[in-house]
């Protein structure tokens, strides 16, 4: 299964070869021996050739024998379905690596001399997002400096309070959750019980993440799901209150709650960037799980623990809350357009 190390006498092994020789990376041939149709899908092929139809030409400037080998192979087997598959795969790869989409000259220049970082600095999920979001995230990270914090002394601005156009990303599942976790590294977490009499559900459990003046609020149940994991990771400042273990335990004991977590997670994921930053409209996640909270009013008193409702109601609540969240998102869009 492993690729053969390129024969001696070649013009010096590149990083890919070295990686392969150390069994670190599957090769084109290894994976594709059984199915020749897939030959074009080798990794190095994609890295070196953005377009299969140009593959032979693109290698003209390269002296790498490895490249030639790949190029020849590609040249032989060029079919339409492969092209589609190829485009798909190159999109995927371009999400992960810097691929200029240009010809082999650039490639060879990279290989020969100047070193460019291969990996994207902040690779994002491949499921739904677009490339623009990626830079977006980075920019937001930069903006988390105190510069974006409330301007106490500054002259008044006429910015529409609460307009934030960055609440648009809709992600789902674990990928998003992991990203969010990554985003929260360095934040200190505290669990709080918040009472807001404007809500039909006036009491809710939240987790507040804070780093300097940046606040992020998440629903508590979410943390319950990733609680053990977070703890193992031992992420620096993520401490929890004394009583929280007890609370977490109590919540985890409720199968209805944990059963709905995936729904809750995806709902919450709609607004991973809803930080409580100054001049930023915050926090749709709060809304999103308000309804289920109603169904499970938390009480530290054991006397109340018996209270609960059917999971049917819970799901219903979730759906409606999701809808509400989307509405809010839409609102935020409108704000930014204003």
């Amino acid at each position: 299964m492993l690729c053969s190390v390129p024969p001696a006498g070649k013009s010096g092994s590149n990083w890919l070869d070295r990686l392969r020789s150390n069994r670190g990376f599957p090769t084109t041939s290894s994976d594709n021996n059984n199915d020749d149709n897939n030959d074009n899908l080798g990794l190095d092929h994609f890295l070196r050739n953005q377009n299969p139809s140009e593959s032979t030409r693109s290698n003209s400037g390269s002296t790498q024998s490895d490249q030639e080998r790949v190029a020849n192979r590609t040249h032989e087997k060029e079919h339409q379905p492969q092209q589609q598959l190829y485009n798909l795969m190159s999109n995927v790869l371009s999400e992960l690596f810097f691929m200029d989409g240009d010809n082999g000259n650039t490639q060879s220049s990279k290989l020969s001399g100047k070193k460019f970082p291969r990996k994207q600095t902040a690779p994002k999920s491949l499921t739904t997002s677009t490339t623009n979001n990626n830079t977006h995230l980075q920019r937001e990270e930069e903006e988390k400096s105190p510069a974006c914090t409330p301007k106490d002394e500054n002259a008044p601005t006429t910015a529409s309070f609460g307009s934030d156009n960055r609440l648009t990303k809709v992600k789902e599942g674990n990928v998003e959750a992991e990203e969010e976790e990554r985003e929260l590294v360095g934040y200190s977490a505290s669990e709080v019980t918040v009472i807001d009499t404007s809500f039909g559900v006036w009491k809710s459990e939240k987790v507040v993440f804070r780093r300097k003046n940046v606040w992020k609020v998440r629903e508590k149940r979410r943390k319950v799901r990733s609680f053990g994991r977070k703890k193992r990771k031992g992420s620096g400042g993520c401490d929890v209150d004394d009583g929280d273990d007890e609370i977490v335990g109590e919540l985890m004991k409720k199968p209805k709650v944990s059963g709905s977590e995936s729904v809750a997670g995806s709902n919450r994921g709609q607004n991973p960037q809803n930080d409580l930053r100054e001049e930023v409209c915050k926090d749709t996640p709060d809304d999103l799980t308000q309804v289920p909270k109603k169904r499970f009013p938390f009480s530290r008193s054991p006397k109340k623990s018996g209270k609960g409702s059917s999971s049917v109601i819970l799901i219903k609540g979730m759906l409606s809350s999701k809808k509400h969240g989307e509405k809010l998102l839409k609102k935020c869009h409108e704000d930014t357009r204003r």
Binding site: V194, T197, L276, D287
Partner: peptide
Amino acid sequence: DIVTGWPGKMKDWLVLQSSNL
């Protein structure tokens, strides 16, 4: 209408922003 429970470090306008009102 009241909102309570947030840490005192949160400034007034952040508490407002986080409120349902």
